[in-house]
Design a protein around this nucleic acid. Structure first.
Lengths: 194, 194
DNA sequence: GGGAGTAGCCTAGCTCTCCTAGGCAAACGG
DNA sequence: CCGTTTGCCTAGGAGAGCTAGGCTACTCCC
């Protein structure tokens, strides 16, 4: 019997593409097996279980996103860098909804550490160099940036902005303006804030 | 045979509690049937399909969240109202992770219209009255607020803030400070922004 | 080039979930 | 008190996840 030539990498890539088409929750071992013209049981030679497949999609997505963000950031600084980062992030999430959704699964600590996550965090911090923030403000700012990006993209994807004529693109631009403004003038803690 | 007394409301409540315990993705018709001491096929007398169950959890969660937000907002205005809204939002998401996750599913337009979603949106707009923003700035600000809240809560839940000693609570307070600051001084569109 | 070992695939079969079809009995309305 | 509706049942099919065990086609080593 001719071998199909299945490898973990080919499996992961096919799974990621399937996820973008039908959603991560519908990425199934059986569907992948059909795609490769192979019985589903055979894939368990390459995978521990179905969950591993989703983790691998997440790791692929994290790496791809980090690459695009890095490319977008090259040679930019200040608000220019902020916008480039944000647009690359949103663009990736829109082009690859399944991959992006997979990124949200809870990775166990050691897997997360070896992922492109830390690289991603490092690049976010790099943007803030243009805004001259010290710790712990820098960490707080990184978290707020990431929250805004992820929140916006996530709400946009689930249709949260559909019930109003204002385009998501316009609101996105203004959110970045606002983010830039507040980063340039990061407020001191309020009285009741530690 | 004694009747178990299953109703759609009891079913939805049990499903929501199960979701908070084990995650929405593990809320199954079979598990609910076991909970009520009934065969799974019997539940299809009350439900169209398994998807309807998740939609009902989402609608319940939206209504509950809107209630809490309304209670938190009573008698407050300005930053006080912003913080109360945000804390009620985050508190609900943390107490009811399964219900909150269910809220993110894509409701079809007419279901969304009859949900507590519009009520929620109305309350968000009410907060902005203290900041005196006109359209379309108001819509942009609502979207940014919601993005920040949802993004933060979502990242916190998937462990995005675990890899740094800074507490999520502290970052949350500062994000609200920043949001208040930028709402009080909402930037004019930048040159390349429509 | 021939054997040994292993990588890559198979069949068979278990459990679980979702869901349909059709039936029976308890509760209720007239 | 009798018919209708309501609430549950059994039976069963399709598809997903996964395990056990077996066969075959490569690869490497002598």
């Amino acid at each position: 019997m001719a071998r199909a030539g299945v490898t973990v990498d080919r499996l992961t890539l096919a799974a990621a593409e399937l996820a973008d088409q039908v959603g991560v929750e519908h990425v199934t071992v059986a569907a992948l097996a059909r795609h490769f013209g192979v019985k589903d049981a055979s894939l368990y030679f390459h995978l521990k279980n179905a969950q591993e497949l989703r983790v691998r999609i997440a790791l692929l997505a994290l790496a791809e996103l980090a690459d695009r963000v890095a490319a977008a950031l090259a040679g930019r600084s200040g608000k220019d860098a902020l916008v480039a980062f944000a647009d690359a992030y949103r663009d990736y999430a829109r082009r690859h909804p399944g991959r992006y959704a997979a990124m949200q699964i809870d990775l166990d600590p050691e897997t997360a550490a070896t992922s492109a996550g830390p690289r991603h965090a490092e690049m976010t911090r790099a943007i803030l160099r243009g805004y001259r923030l010290d710790e712990p403000d820098q960490t707080d700012a990184v978290r707020m940036m990431h929250s805004t990006f992820h929140g916006f993209v996530s709400l946009e994807r689930t249709g949260g902005f559909r019930h109003h004529p204002r385009t998501a693109d316009a609101s996105w631009s203004r959110a970045l303006d606002a983010l830039d403004a507040v980063l340039r003038n990061w407020p001191r803690p309020s009285d009741d804030t530690p």
